[in-house]
């Protein structure tokens, strides 16, 4: 399957996780990876499944590298009706009121432009005891299986 991993990060944790996910699944799939700040909404491709990895910063805001993408989405209003994505969030429950609001906002932005979310949004907690990859690898496997089934493809 063609998969593009897009990450939004402020201090690099989401970037490292995105690269880990890439290494984990690249044997079985055709993978591209990009920082959201280097990705334009016009590049979305219906043939491709998108894995979004995004943290939260400030006061429940998108991290810096996701901000230009969000602005471009608002400005260009692309029709993402043929796009499927899944999203994994990084946050910290110390910020309880805004825990994982960044990825939540990013998912809402995708959906508002017609994109279809596959699976539930999974959230890593920097104050918890799990390693991000221990949550993210099973998540990636599950959403890839789900989208393969949905699109009638062999995984």
């Amino acid at each position: 399957m063609k998969i593009t991993i897009l990450y939004g990060t402020e201090t690099g944790n989401a970037e490292m996780l995105a690269e880990d996910i890439q290494s984990e699944i690249e044997a079985d799939h055709e993978i591209a990876i990009s920082n959201l700040e280097d990705f334009a909404p016009g590049e979305f491709d219906a043939e491709c499944f998108y894995l979004l990895v995004c943290s939260t910063y400030g006061d429940g805001d998108l991290p810096a590298s996701a901000q230009p993408f969000a602005d471009a989405m608002e400005a260009e209003k692309p029709d993402l009706g043929a796009i499927h994505f899944a999203i994994f969030g990084l946050g910290d429950s110390e910020y309880d009121e805004t825990f994982n609001h960044g990825p939540k906002k990013l998912a809402e932005l995708m959906i508002a432009h017609g994109a279809h979310q596959v699976g539930e949004r999974v959230a890593h907690d920097a104050s918890g005891s799990d390693m991000a990859e221990d949550l993210a690898f099973p998540w990636a496997e599950a959403v890839i299986a789900e989208v393969s089934e949905k699109l009638g493809e062999a995984a």
Binding site: N13, M16, D92, S93, D125, A126, S127
Partner: peptide, 14 residues
Amino acid sequence: DHQGTKGVARQFAR
């Protein structure tokens, strides 16, 4: 008491 913020050390270990 901001252990979450110290999580960047995992990147540095890499």
